[in-house]
Nucleic acid binder design. Structure first.
Lengths: 165, 165
DNA sequence: TATTGTTATACTCTATAACTATA
DNA sequence: TATAGTTATAGAGTATAACAATA
């Protein structure tokens, strides 16, 4: 294998910027969610993903796939949310193996309450220094990167079909 | 306080894209660092920040400030690295309170070895779908966001001068 | 008094592997 | 045999607060 060429300065700047912005934004958002709703970012994401679906109901597996979680990690987080009465677990009539996560009224209420502050943080921190063109450009370029990332195999080379998750 | 306007679809797309790209990229990079060097991302960053300075030496506080770490978290991570002989802790001649983190030869060697794979992952995952203009645009826009983020107070309103960190 | 750093502690989160049950 | 999910367990990381020492 030949020496990989180093990244040029512009590439490095872009890479570091993405990582730092993502990290700082996540930090800020986490604090707001913790303060205003006692939620971690992942818990918030679970509520959001479930709440955004048609009737506030999603299969465990579908939530896990979307949030990159390990199955057991999702089981843990959903248990935390269920303990607070924010979601309820139901069995699926179609597939006895499946578990459905359903947003409770309290869950929806908390989600809506917390979302307001969330939007404010994101707007203040992220969008303030940007104009419409910047936003469009960002969405376009990063959207392409995201699509590419979703395509590329996890670089564990082998497709990895065995052993769940 | 008036209802905050929700983010428009373009803004949402950009926000989600940043978070997802950052998260996926971090995941991929973490796996490579773990596999090839037994390093967490933060440990890698510590080595990189220290190694990038003039003589491979940095004060604890300066490293912590740059990596958003709590002091105690940095103490912990530096201890991990020191146990493996990748860094050494030295006292500062100028300020008896300070502790200097210095990259050892083994630390530098590992950093260089791991950096190759790191660059490959970033290139393959992040830069493949982008042309030069995209990269420039990204660096410009996200650079502005980052600068803005560094400026804005942590939204805990109060300047927070008391109590370290 | 403010700053630098460490320690103890408690907690959250994550991942792995073994396991059950349904398809 | 593959898929959906849980459990037990163990480990890594983080934050807080109390502390010691130097500026």
């Amino acid at each position: 294998m030949p020496e990989p060429a180093p990244l040029d300065p512009e590439q490095l700047a872009a890479y570091f910027a993405v990582m730092e912005v993502g990290s700082l934004l996540q930090h800020a958002v986490e604090q707001q969610l913790r303060d205003e709703g006692g939620l971690s970012y992942i818990q918030f994401q679970i509520l959001a993903v479930v709440g955004e679906s048609a009737e506030g109901r999603q299969r465990m597996t579908d939530v896990a796939d979307r949030l990159v979680h390990s199955r057991s990690g999702l089981t843990y987080q959903v248990a935390q949310l269920a303990e607070r009465g924010l979601v309820a677990k139901e069995s699926s009539p179609e597939d006895e193996r499946s578990v459905i996560v359903a947003l409770t009224p309290q869950g929806r209420e908390l989600l809506e309450r917390v979302m307001a502050g969330h939007v404010e943080v994101v707007r203040g921190l992220f969008f303030t220094p940007l104009n419409d063109e910047d936003v469009t450009a960002l969405g376009d370029v990063l959207g392409r990167v995201r699509d590419h990332m979703r395509t590329v195999p996890p670089r564990s080379a082998a497709p990895r079909r065995r052993r769940g998750n």
